[in-house]
Computed example of a mutant assay.
Amino acid sequence: MFYRPEDGHGLPHNPFNAIVSPRPIGWISTRGSEGDNLAPYSFFNAVAYVPPQVMFASTGRKDSLGNIEETGVFAVNIVEYAAREVMNATSTAAKRGTDEFALAGVAKAECTTIACPRVEGAPATLECRMTEILTLRGKDNFLIVGEVTGVHIRDDCLNEGRFDVTRFHPVSRLGYRDFAVVREVFTMKRPDDA
């Protein structure tokens, strides 16, 4: 099968999200003049080491984007398998000003380097200062880039000095309404490793 996106795919569901998978989930927390917000984004990833930077994309002018435009900060909370249901509950299209932390029963804590809430007890949280918001092609597509200014790591997720995903099993997004969980990890050395 081959198709051009502008011509349509002819399938009952769009295969694009399923092809580009698995995708990590950035559980983005923000604070604005109308309160705190928490929402999952599956167009999320790390994009640079030094300084550490992350990005996520918003389809639509959602509360997360509005709060970041207002304050210039956000936090990325890593989603573990044990939090999959509450993460999903925060994906609801609640009216502006709704505190999804309270709505889904998610405990919150304050960030250290920015004025923003974070998910208390998340395996890791990246505190970020927005560096740019790009308007992408199409209707209401935005790319938010942030520099990481602080990192929280839950102590039980460290194993011999390494952040160990097998200790909490991160959740990722596949296509459609499908998700995956990391339960198996393997290591490969690069050809130029010493």
Results as ranks from 00 to 15, higher is better:
123 P>W: 03
69 E>S: 09
136 L>I: 11
45 N>W: 02
63 D>A: 13
47 V>G: 04
68 I>V: 15
107 A>Q: 14
83 A>T: 07
94 A>W: 02
55 M>G: 08
46 A>Q: 14
115 A>E: 15
67 N>T: 04
58 S>V: 11
104 A>L: 01
112 T>R: 14
79 V>L: 05
57 A>Q: 14
53 Q>A: 13
64 S>K: 05
123 P>F: 04
88 N>V: 09
95 K>C: 08
110 E>Q: 14
135 T>A: 11
127 E>T: 12
81 Y>E: 15
94 A>E: 05
65 L>R: 07
86 V>P: 03
124 A>E: 12
65 L>P: 12
117 P>R: 12
113 T>Y: 07
119 V>N: 00
85 E>H: 13
109 A>C: 06
99 D>Y: 04
81 Y>I: 00
111 C>T: 13
61 R>L: 11
66 G>E: 14
52 P>M: 06
102 A>V: 13
137 R>T: 14
78 I>F: 09
74 F>E: 07
98 T>K: 08
112 T>K: 14
50 V>G: 12
70 E>P: 00
100 E>Y: 05
72 G>T: 12
130 M>F: 04
82 A>I: 05
109 A>Y: 03
105 G>L: 01
119 V>T: 00
62 K>W: 01
89 A>H: 03
72 G>P: 02
136 L>D: 13
87 M>K: 00
59 T>Y: 12
82 A>F: 04
77 N>I: 06
119 V>Y: 01
138 G>F: 07
95 K>Q: 15
109 A>M: 03
126 L>V: 09
91 S>N: 04
129 R>D: 05
93 A>N: 15
80 E>K: 13
103 L>W: 06
71 T>M: 11
124 A>N: 13
101 F>V: 13
123 P>Y: 06
88 N>E: 12
89 A>M: 06
131 T>D: 12
91 S>G: 14
113 T>R: 12
57 A>R: 07
105 G>P: 00
58 S>P: 10
84 R>L: 03
66 G>C: 10
120 E>L: 09
138 G>Q: 09
57 A>S: 15
61 R>C: 06
127 E>R: 05
123 P>S: 11
81 Y>M: 10
122 A>W: 00
136 L>A: 14
90 T>L: 06
127 E>Y: 08
134 L>P: 11
59 T>M: 11
80 E>A: 14
93 A>E: 15
114 I>S: 01
126 L>K: 00
60 G>K: 08
90 T>V: 10
63 D>K: 07
127 E>F: 05
106 V>W: 00
97 G>H: 08
95 K>Y: 15
62 K>A: 02
127 E>D: 11
109 A>L: 02
90 T>G: 09
62 K>G: 05
81 Y>T: 01
83 A>W: 07
126 L>Y: 02
131 T>V: 13
130 M>W: 01
46 A>Y: 08
129 R>W: 04
88 N>W: 03
117 P>D: 09
106 V>E: 01
116 C>Y: 06
59 T>G: 15
52 P>Q: 09
114 I>K: 00
116 C>Q: 08
87 M>F: 01
59 T>A: 13
118 R>C: 07
